[in-house]
Design a binder for these strands. Sequence first.
DNA 1: GTCTATATCGAGATAGAC
DNA 2: GTCTATCTCGATATAGAC
Lengths: 229, 229
Amino acid sequence: MPGKQAAAAEETANAGRIRRGQLLHIVESAERAFAEAGFAGTTMTRLAEAAGLPKANLHYYFGTKEKLYRAVLENILTLWLDDMAPIVPERAPAEALGAYIRAKMGHSRARPHASKVFASEILHGAPHLRGFLTHELRRRVAEKTRVIEHWIARGRMAKVDPVHLFFAIWAMTQTYADFDVQMRAVLGCAALGTAEYEAGEQTVLRLVLHGCGLTTEDINEGEQGPCRS
Amino acid sequence: MPGKQAAAAEETANAGRIRRGQLLHIVESAERAFAEAGFAGTTMTRLAEAAGLPKANLHYYFGTKEKLYRAVLENILTLWLDDMAPIVPERAPAEALGAYIRAKMGHSRARPHASKVFASEILHGAPHLRGFLTHELRRRVAEKTRVIEHWIARGRMAKVDPVHLFFAIWAMTQTYADFDVQMRAVLGCAALGTAEYEAGEQTVLRLVLHGCGLTTEDINEGEQGPCRS
DNA sequence: GTCTATATCGAGATAGAC
DNA sequence: GTCTATCTCGATATAGAC
């Protein structure tokens, strides 16, 4: 009975699609909830409210609160590594670092909750991220460090410790997501808008590029896209 | 009976002294415990263990877990504001900013737990610090912003947004306490030692000073202490 | 002032009807 | 697959002996 089989297959596919949709919906709403209160401070009741579902459904899909939290973290990690893609030896240092900083600032603005969940995890000893930090991240940093050293050796930028340069860039860009409450209090504004992000991006670009012996004009050197200084 | 009165007074003084000692001891051990797991993630049992006392004693002294946490926070806040003291119009910009950065880096190294408790509080919306952020901190930043603007107006440093400059300095220096786990994983070392802090301080100094149109040599301009570049 | 024993509540997790 | 009702445990907080 091919008709019945097809219907069954379609049903299975639909079920799978619905299931994946539910999983993604739960993970996304959980990201926001965990960002507000951290792992320990977020209750299953709160997570269920955030997803608009009964608690039992979350347990049905993820088993435990910890497994749901890990799913949220994994959903975030690729962002961090992918942002480093522009840093390749062929590109000009100012252009590559500028693109990296803009990508990081963009993520702070677009995915502030993701940044906060990550920050909270690291802050409290990263018990769920040991492997990621000591393997994937470490490898990626080592790889990009070689690119920076290559630029320095060729005299294309000043001699700066590449690893600490990354620490500085991470800190300055992620702080726009993680510490937004502090910024809003100091600036006296209800929310960080385009103006604040623009000013922040300019400041970070300035410190990093000048610190590396480059100028903000170097940014568009060899770039074909529209000028955006 | 002056003798008895004196003894009673001494006893009271001793009791007061012991009490203050106990309070301080509990607050200091609680700082470490809260830094490890955040407010929600730290149990009274854990706090009691950290202080080496029964749970009931903590409740006797502080009433509730939240009041103990607030005591820890208040113990920390003055640090943040006091570090800004070097920023006065009379000093040379490079020297003042350099002193500020070294003070902040010094605190990250000497009081990493304090930094983490503060970071965790801000990260989760600063429910216990609203007043501090919107009053004390905001006022202090406004005051120091005027100093920076004064330097810029006199052509003593480049035109940089003062508030975002502070955000950048806070982020870059505090990350050495808050994200030490990530740094240790990337660097492959068991603990951040003098070498790492030196390299970090040099990097932060470099980015900030060059970003402000100053050079690292400007730092000792007009300074009478020993050269420490 | 100090500590043991305990009350009370809310958390994560699950059983079982639908 | 979904949800209500419930179990169990560990949390904060306190009562009351010493």
